Amino acid sequence: MALNTPNLKLVKPEITDKIDVSIANFAQNADKIDAATKQLQDKTASLQSNLDKTKQDVSNLRSSLDNTKKDVTSLQGSLNTTNKNVATNKSEIASNNNRINAIESNISEINKDIATINQTLDVIQSGLDEVKNKAQENKSAIEAMQTQLNQYGERLTALENLLKEPETPPEGEA
């Protein structure tokens, strides 16, 4: 009975094997070795391709890392500039807050002045209303006097007309 190798299961010839069986076993062993060699070559080619891809990936990653380092350096510069701008803006905000407080104080004073002016205007308006009422009363009085004057004028005209008429002698005297 023939023995097989543990990995490829190649047939080991025995002394008692006939030559034709040994040749047949040799042919089978050659096919198995050839197939195993082909699998190893395919796996080696696949591994080499993967290795080449991995090397390219590593190269790309190194390039990307270099670019990222440049970007980080640039961003650090931008961050420093931004921090300076923030400090400047904080200072300007504090200054603007002081200006706003001063303006609010001025507005408060102006509002007090406006209230005083409004009170003065109310007093003036009240005085104007009184003057207007007196003027209306005077106008009514003047209109009444004008009416009386017109009536006096009409009477005067009537009297003048009477005076201008020739006197007629009483009847029987002429």
Rank of each mutant, 00 (worst) to 15 (best):
I100H: 01
S91V: 00
N67H: 00
S49V: 12
S95M: 03
R62E: 15
S105I: 08
D42C: 03
S91E: 07
K43G: 13
I100Q: 00
T44P: 07
A87F: 05
N101S: 13
T73P: 11
S91N: 07
Q39F: 15
N96I: 01
A102Y: 04
D52Y: 15
E92Q: 14
K32V: 09
V58T: 10
S78G: 11
A102K: 00
E92D: 05
A35R: 13
K69G: 03
N85R: 11
T81M: 12
I100L: 05
K70C: 02
E92A: 11
E92C: 03
L51S: 14
L47Q: 10
E92F: 04
A45L: 09
I100F: 04
K38R: 15
A102Q: 08
D66W: 07
R62N: 15
K38S: 10
T44L: 14
N80D: 14
A35D: 14
D52F: 15
N101A: 12
S78C: 03
A36T: 10
L65V: 13
D52W: 15
K53T: 10
D66M: 04
N85W: 00
Q56S: 12
K38H: 13
D57Y: 03
I103R: 00
S63T: 14
T44C: 09
D31P: 01
A35H: 13
S63P: 14
K55N: 12
D66A: 10
K84H: 06
N98T: 11
N98A: 01
D34C: 05
I103H: 06
D57A: 10
L79R: 08
N83R: 12
D66F: 09
V58P: 03
D71Q: 08
N50V: 00
D42V: 09
L61P: 13
T68G: 07
K84P: 09
D34Y: 03
N89D: 05
K90G: 05
L61N: 14
E104K: 07
A87Y: 00
K90T: 08
A102H: 04
L40N: 12
L75D: 02
S74H: 08
V86D: 01
L65W: 10
K53L: 09
V58F: 12
K38E: 06
K32F: 09
N83F: 01
S46A: 07
N80S: 12
D31N: 07
K38W: 14
T44W: 15
Q56M: 09
A102W: 06
K32T: 10
K53N: 09
D42T: 13
A30I: 03
S105F: 00
S64D: 13
L65E: 09
V72C: 04
T68H: 05
T44S: 11
D34W: 05
T88P: 07
A94C: 02
N85F: 00
L75C: 06
S64W: 00
Q76D: 05
A30Y: 01
R99K: 13
S91F: 03
S59V: 10
N97M: 05
S59I: 10
K69M: 02
N101C: 06
Q76Y: 00
G77H: 07
K32M: 11
N83V: 02
N96A: 04
A30E: 02
V72Q: 02
I103A: 04
